[in-house]
């Protein structure tokens, strides 16, 4: 029972971590919270499910999901955030909330309010470790998440664009003076953050075999809590925060009350804010 909940928690934790990475990168570079991150996740899932239903090809579906998520991310950056740069944090915050409502209601308009299945079977095999049953899909989710996190790390530390993002996050004026195209760094941040969220959305769509216009709301909020838990702006923090949150939530649901499963994330958040506002890995508040 304990190990089973631990595995289930790690699986949802991986997904929270992927979304939390998007939050934390955008916060690190722009100092704003992209409240529409959950909607990017949702559009990734819908893009994939729509193309999969039409073509039956998984490769095309993944491409479409990635494309949809990145497109939404870039549009958000261009129209909801770029015009508001340098204003009080409340302004982009309200704009982001608006964008989030707009995107989820547009999805309901285009895809209908009911759940759509994503009927792809990965592998029916289950493995038993310490009395916990791990399905092939769960292994896939953990594997893909780990690979993406490594890829993100390499991108940020090795590539030109990644280094530009880090430079702008440290000091955007100094970065601009050293000839870095700051706008391009913002777009690169939104693109990589959106791609991660889009993948998370697709993985969850297959895992639960369902997509719906509101599917991004709770994972989005919980991932934000995970980002704060780990320390906003910290990449390892987002990963640790996501995993801790996923495990805590599943154990809480199993041992305390499953009715309040969704509340644990926010209770954890309030506790962190009281005890250690800068989060587990945060350097400063």
């Amino acid at each position: 029972m304990f190990f089973q909940q631990l595995v289930n928690g790690l699986v949802s934790g991986c997904v929270y971590a992927l979304i939390a990475l998007g939050y934390t990168m955008i916060f690190g570079i722009l100092g704003i919270v992209n409240f529409a991150q959950g909607e990017i996740y949702m559009f990734g899932a819908f893009g994939a499910v729509t193309v999969y239903a039409a073509t039956g090809s998984l490769a095309l579906a993944i491409l479409a999901g990635l494309g949809a998520a990145c497109l939404v991310g870039v549009l958000l950056e261009r129209f909801a955030f770029r015009p508001l740069r340098g204003t009080h944090p409340l302004v982009p915050l309200i704009s982001a909330i608006g964008a989030s409502i707009l995107l989820s209601s547009l999805a309901r308009f285009f895809f209908g309010p009911e759940d759509r299945p994503f009927p792809h079977e990965f592998s029916a095999a289950t493995y038993t470790v310490f009395s916990a049953h791990i399905t092939g899909m769960q292994l896939t989710i953990m594997g893909i998440s780990a690979a993406l996190m490594t890829a993100l790390w390499l991108f940020l530390t090795m590539s030109r664009h990644g280094k530009a993002i880090q430079a702008v996050a440290m000091d955007s004026d100094a970065a601009r003076l050293s000839g870095i195209n700051v706008n391009r760094a913002y777009v690169a941040t939104f693109l990589s953050g959106s791609a991660l969220s889009g993948v998370a959305g697709m993985l969850m769509a297959v895992y639960y075999n369902a997509t719906s216009p509101t599917m991004g709301l709770l994972p989005g909020l919980k991932a934000f809590s995970a980002a704060i838990l780990g320390g906003v702006g910290s990449i390892p923090g987002a990963i640790i925060g996501g995993l801790v949150l996923g495990v805590a939530e599943n154990l809480g649901a199993a041992y305390l009350s499953s009715n309040f499963k969704d509340a644990f994330a926010f209770i954890a958040l309030v506790l962190v804010l009281i005890i250690r506002p800068r989060g587990i890995m945060g350097q400063r508040k």
Partner: peptide, 20 residues
Amino acid sequence: ADYQDIFYGALLVTMMVFRP
């Protein structure tokens, strides 16, 4: 009525961008 939320969302973004 079904499109109310599209309207609210668009309203918040456009107000913030054009007439905060």
